[in-house]
Design a protein around this nucleic acid. Structure first.
Ligand SMILES: [Mn+2]
Ligand SMILES: [Mn+2]
Ligand SMILES: [Zn+2]
Ligand SMILES: [Zn+2]
Lengths: 139, 139
DNA sequence: AATTTAAATTAGAATAGTTCTTGATCCAAT
DNA sequence: ATTGGATCAAGAACTATTCTAATTTAAATT
């Protein structure tokens, strides 16, 4: 193993996000996700940032993704038991899985809609997180 | 390996469900799920029906569960990447995960509510399946 | 600037839920 | 009774993810 030169920071990603120090690896992961709307998997992130960081490991990609999720910089989304995917859209939204193409699309809530209006929730329920997944076809 | 005596069918489960022949193993899996509201995992089903079928294998439980799901007799529900759980409630409903107790509760939709009323769906979208998951606390 | 301390990264092993493979067994139809 | 297809059982294989341990990097302290 060779020694590494210090990694310059990328200009368009801040040095810190929500108290998380942005190392070079975290920057590459975060920057790639910001420009992606495809909800890539950890492995897809890994293959992509290897172009900029040939020595990066998959474990580090998992570490970076987890750190970014923990600091609310990105979101982790799951479809059934498929590999987890990662989403840079921090607004509350759902996910539509187009079965024809395999693509995933963000779906916004209509303005002014609250879940309590739609769901028959038990009393004294405090909702911390909501997940809405749709499967179907774009005709 | 010893030879097995023929297994009698259980009186309260039909011989066939939606075209799926109900073997003794499928009957035990199905009958246990019908009486459960806890959304058990495959392993929990396995441990429970072993009491009635000591020779049953975990692979068979997975096979039975998959067959029942495929024939719309039960539903498979996933929470993040936790082990899959199985639900006998065929009505359209969501799942509330109580973080305090770890229990899962079915959540009905309010009558007369359509998803198109709530979500800003792209045009020409045909929804085949919806999944709503809530996480929070029952205070 | 050198030293110390802590955080982050890496490579590979380990984990765990699920699926697959293969041979045995069951069952319906001939 | 025999055949053929479905089902089952046991264990191996698979795979996304997590863990471990050693190294490297960065921050903090002297
Ligand atoms: Mn992946
Ligand atoms: Mn299980
Ligand atoms: Zn998204
Ligand atoms: Zn349910």
């Amino acid at each position: 193993m060779t020694t590494h030169l210090p990694h310059p920071h990328h200009p368009d990603v801040p040095e810190e996000i929500n108290g998380l120090r942005m190392t070079r690896q975290r920057q590459e992961v975060y920057r790639f996700l910001l420009g992606e709307r495809s909800h890539p998997t950890a492995n897809e992130v890994f293959m992509r940032i290897k172009e900029a960081l040939p020595h990066v490991s998959l474990a580090t990609v998992y570490n970076c993704l987890e750190a970014l999720v923990q600091h609310n910089a990105i979101r982790k989304v799951n479809f059934d038991r498929e590999p987890s995917r990662y989403c840079p859209n921090l607004a509350e939204h759902g996910h539509f899985h187009d079965e024809t193409t395999g693509t995933i699309h963000d779906v916004k809530f209509k303005p002014g809609i609250s879940l309590a209006d739609v769901l028959d929730l038990p009393p004294n329920t405090v909702i911390k997180d909501v997940e809405i997944t749709l499967r179907g076809q774009l005709t």
